[in-house]
Amino acid sequence: MKFTGTVIKYGDNVDTDVIIPARHLNTIDVKELASHCMEDIDKDFHKKIKEGDIMVAGLNFGCGSSREHAPIAIKASGISLVIAKSFARIFYRNAINIGLAILECPEAAEAIENGHQVEADLDAGLITDLTTGAKFKTNPFPPFIQKMITNGGLVASIQKGDFC
């Protein structure tokens, strides 16, 4: 799986309350959730994101609530991949379960700047900053997780009889 896109960058500890504020959790409509994504720290987020853009963030991305609405809103807004220095564990798990691609790579998340063009190869665990030419190596997912992503998430894995 390969992704190429323009980077939108945020800092450390981006929490689920700013990714999708709880006041919007009275719906499960993915488009409506996407329209409020990041609005408390970046009011025009949903207007400026183009399909395929890549989000880059600092430490502990997605900390806080277990709301799956958070990765759902990011994915539905058009973001193809999130690269962070680290992810909060429930967000990490939820992203994999719903099929939002994520990569943990502190070096890339530090070096890549807002607006850069980035290419990421999930199978090889390779991130390239096309703007600067810098390359970053990260650990690809273990086979267990890769299988789940290839199947299209946890629900699809169970449907295929591939889970237990």
């Binding site: 709301r67 799956e68 798990r93 379960n97 889970f163």
Partner: peptide
Amino acid sequence: VGSTDMACGMAT
């Protein structure tokens, strides 16, 4: 966990 884990947990 998230809702997908809950769904799969409820089923399996």
